[in-house]
């Protein structure tokens, strides 16, 4: 059964919330139940921003969870907070460009990739969120890549249109790195 409870977390501006929305839109496009809920405290400004995305074949009860089945951590504070919380058997995607510690967990699948550097090579470090999302989807098989590409087309804002192709590349590059991990 397809069911994943994912936390996306990073500095404000790294696009953790957008990557989460992209996953939620993709789940919805595949007729799955989805919830997306951000942390919205004022204490988060300038600090970490995170969101919880649940995508499931079942109707979703609790939209907020303590132990995610997957976590995407784009910076060090996010790594420190969420690495210990991932459920055994779960997936952790780490942006090693900004996280210089390694996970000590041996009961989860850790995908460590320099997402910001990969994104920069593709033209803009700000696509690190999509690189990481590609790795997550490769590891979980939650939705089809085609669906995510479609949702990128629909939800990338007008002024970011020129970044559509690079974002698609970023998605697949993340997936390729995850596969080789």
């Amino acid at each position: 059964m397809r069911h994943e409870e994912t936390i996306f977390s990073g500095f404000g501006g790294q696009g953790a919330l957008f990557a989460g929305q992209l996953l939620a839109y993709s789940g919805m496009a595949e007729d799955l139940h989805v919830t997306w809920i951000p942390s919205y405290g004022p204490e988060m400004r300038g600090g970490t921003a995170n969101c919880t995305v649940i995508v499931s074949e079942m109707e979703i009860g609790a939209p907020i969870i303590r132990h995610p089945t997957a976590a995407v951590v784009l910076n060090l504070p996010s790594m420190e907070k969420y690495e210990p919380l991932v459920k055994p058997g779960g997936v952790l995607v780490v942006n090693t460009s900004l996280v210089d510690i390694e996970s000590e967990r041996d009961d989860i699948r850790v995908i460590a990739l320099p997402a910001s550097d990969i994104a920069e090579e593709l033209g803009n470090a700000r696509m690190a969120n999509v690189v990481a999302l590609g790795a997550l989807i490769e590891a979980t098989g939650l939705v089809d890549f085609e669906t995510v590409e479609q949702q990128l087309e629909e939800h990338l804002s007008e002024r970011q249109r020129e970044w559509l192709k690079p974002n698609k590349k970023a998605l697949h590059e993340g997936a390729a790195r995850a596969k080789s991990e």
Partner: peptide
Amino acid sequence: DGSIGQMMES
């Protein structure tokens, strides 16, 4: 509540 207000759902 804040959660219902801030949450996105289909």
